[in-house]
Design a protein around this nucleic acid. Structure first.
Lengths: 333, 333
DNA sequence: TTGTAGGCGTTATCAG
DNA sequence: CTGATAACGCCTACAA
């Protein structure tokens, strides 16, 4: 079943059928209807491969992320897919895991599929070491690259991110203002956005306290138990703290579990602020105060920018979105 | 840059280059090495469209689910993608939302992309009304269809599901055995697996109690607050219950929130059992006893079966996986 | 407004 | 083992 079958049955040439399919050039209303009717009858669908071969595009966007089962990334993937589809694009999803080597291989694979653009859902994707990101830079020579929550400065790379620095700066300041000076900062990896958060934390401390204890900053396993145990361990070793800022909600939940185990009352003995405002934040007890970084807005903005790029319109290389604190019961501002 | 460039530079015909690329037919070691070297030098990658055009396949599997941001589905998507890629297949992800009309449209779209097979992540996907599933049945005429947590009996449809009936039967029995007779059953939709769970619930009640109260069975919004409020409402209307079986963890968490609001102690006044053993189950307080339905095993099995189908090996039309109860602190068996 | 014919980059079938 | 050549199905000048 192909365009020839349709053209034959409709008594026109394949060119005319093609015109009807693509709807741009002029075709008389009468023939158009006839062709449409035949296509309907035959249940004809254009072959995307043949079409792709000529046009060298299949209207497909690659999406890469480390792990689509992470609640934040899962949301991002969901919204991205939805928005892309609204614009007539499909998406190839590709979860790479956390190893650089795999990320590089998957990127190559995706490019070989002739995707029209690549969306990288940052957070865990960008390496702290700049050199390790050259493979992304190089890919930008082939297709536009959209970075969600990441920042690389190069033509054809478009970044959409939330102002993590500011958000953590503000959160930290709120705690400091109410006299909570022994604040722990927990994060899971040296991703771009983690570094931003960390810097926001440090900046607030320096501004208000003019001092900074490195022993209050910890990389932490991305699990509830792991976080709980780390805090337990730190506390046993004599570290004093009365607040925790977590770079992810799951770490915040871990901190709650720690407080419970130690019989600390929240937020009096221990204030806790999470990040992402995910489902986890409303699930725990007490419910977690968390920074909402607007995944949906972030995703929509990313796709909108991408569409501008693909349509050869001017598009900003960097878009920053502000985020806000959703206060629940692990703080009392 | 195409196969001609390579053939010219290597001094062989395009046929030979093609053979080297595909590695099946016999090529002398010497020419093979020469061709490989040239391909490397030129950085040549075969054009997937041209290839697809000839072979009429692009080694791509469609994945449909209602909402990839649902924790259970997010996990399923993650594992499916990983397993498919291991087998050299890419995946098109497609989140349809919950409306039948959209599901139908997306399915058509996916088929028009010439996917090699379709994986439908069931749960919310199958309609209670059999007629509403005919579009899936029809699709099975075109490509193999894998149903995860769904059941449709037709050639070329392969179902992988967990024994939800048994799991809920067992859970209910445990509660009954310890004298908890007023058990509420909460679920969110009339999906195939929901019905299985419900039937398991009913069967256990009939077997042990020889009676069944319809007012103890409720469809419930899939949110924490929605569940909490529903229970509050039921209780205010005089309904007595001392246990809740939830068809999803999130409903279980809602029940916990309800208990907290009412000052009930868990599990003494109210026992709660969730379903899916998702992150939510360890996040709440007390942690939720939950049925683990082994998403990972389910996903792996689905892909393994699919690979058999695609390789024309015999494959079972229905595979059932058992699941087990993970006891935490919302029950005391 | 419509039709013809060439090209897109592979793979596969034949001969050699 | 290797090479020429015909598909594969569509799009798009160019011609009519």
């Amino acid at each position: 079943m192909n365009i020839y079958d349709v053209s034959e049955k409709a008594g026109v040439s394949i060119a005319t059928v093609s015109r009807v399919i693509n709807g741009n050039s002029k075709v008389s209303e009468k023939t158009k209807q006839k062709v449409l009717r035949v296509m309907e009858e035959l249940g004809y669908t254009p072959n995307v491969f043949a079409r792709g071969l000529g046009l060298n595009t299949m209207k497909t966007i690659g999406i890469m992320c480390a792990d689509s089962s992470d609640p934040f990334l899962a949301n991002a993937v969901y919204y991205l897919e939805r928005e892309l589809r609204k614009n007539g694009y499909d998406s190839f999803l590709c979860c790479t895991g956390y190893e650089l080597k795999n990320k590089q291989n998957y990127l190559k694979l995706l490019l070989s599929k002739r995707i029209d653009a690549l969306v990288i859902v940052g957070s865990y994707f960008l390496e702290a070491n700049t050199k390790d990101n050259t493979y992304i830079m190089e890919a930008a020579d082939e297709v536009p690259i959209m970075l969600m929550n990441g920042n690389l400065n190069k033509p054809n790379i478009y970044c959409t991110l939330c102002d993590d620095h500011q958000a953590v700066y503000d959160a930290t300041s709120l705690l400091l203002n109410q006299g909570k000076k022994d604040i722990l900062f927990l994060y899971t990896s040296k991703s771009y956005s983690s570094i931003q958060k960390l810097n926001g934390f440090k900046a607030a401390l320096m501004d208000k306290l003019h001092t900074l204890k490195e022993e209050n900053i910890h990389i932490c396993p991305a699990t509830i138990e792991g976080t709980r145990d780390l805090l337990l361990h730190l506390s046993m070793n004599g570290l004093k703290f009365n607040a925790v800022i977590a770079a992810e909600d799951i770490l915040g939940v871990g901190a709650i579990k720690y407080a419970k185990l130690k019989g600390l009352s929240i937020p009096e003995d221990l204030s806790i602020i999470g990040y992402n405002n995910s489902l986890l934040a409303t699930c725990c007890e007490p419910e977690l105060t968390s920074v909402d970084n607007h995944v949906e807005t972030l995703s929509i903005t990313t796709v909108n920018t991408l569409m501008r790029v693909l349509n050869n319109q001017k598009a900003p290389n960097k878009t920053t979105i502000s985020n806000d604190l959703v206060e629940r019961y692990t703080t009392n501002f």
